[in-house]
Design a protein around this nucleic acid. Structure first.
Lengths: 113, 113
DNA sequence: GATATATTTAACTAAATAGTTAATTAACTG
DNA sequence: CAGTTAATTAACTATTTAGTTAAATATATC
């Protein structure tokens, strides 16, 4: 259950409703009802999605009267971006066949040593 | 069940074993036994992880005698990178308080119109 | 053809997920 | 304080997941 941060971020993002909620928060703070409005889903379902996003620290929440507004926290997305770094070289070069490319990379490594 | 590509990629990445397998494939093609070796897990468990990665198109497989070597396919990672684009501005600017930043962004939007 | 190696499939289990409805909490409004 | 609105919690269900052990498949080797 104490899943590592990267896993819980990826898990939170592995759902189209949650990604849509995040996207909706890019324009600023929103209440739960605001966020729920576009979806054909009950409020408790939205509450649960928000809990998943909150545990992953992708959103933060405050209190304003009976509202519990949410805002985006980009930190975990930045962490994913950093994690991706090790893979960028695999698509940034232009190549047709991955095997050729890997071979090329390995050859280059040898030359660098 | 026919989950969208982005969801199935994020889901595949939401597991440390699968991420470790991917990382291991950055150095080139590996057999299932090679990939399984670092983990305290049975072979069928690894086979299942590979199936998840394969369905997400993060790996591709071939046949060589009794071996079924795997290699990395960076395509879906590139797609995640593109998806992230809309969030980059949220961490690329330097700011202390997200609310201030959001307010700033909204102000800027108004000025742009 | 018998046997060993590499991998997968089948059948099962325990736990987690994504949703529901109904009830509860909290705060505002008349 | 009665009623309404915003949101959460509880209790339940169906599905998916991540793992297991045991059996099956496929290829190579003797």
């Amino acid at each position: 259950m104490p899943s590592d941060p990267l896993s819980s971020t990826f898990h939170a993002l592995a759902d189209p409703t949650r990604r849509a909620i995040l996207a909706s928060l890019t324009t600023g703070e929103k209440t739960v009802s605001d966020l729920a409005e576009p979806f054909d889903m009950t409020m408790p379902a939205i509450t649960k999605h928000l809990k998943v996003l909150e545990k992953a620290k992708l959103i933060e929440r405050s209190k304003q009267a009976q509202y519990r507004p949410c805002h985006l926290n980009p930190g975990p997305l930045k962490d994913i971006d950093s994690w991706m770094e090790q893979y960028r070289k695999f698509w940034e070069a232009s190549f047709d066949c991955l095997d050729d490319y890997l071979h090329q990379l390995q050859t280059k490594e040898k030359n660098d040593e």
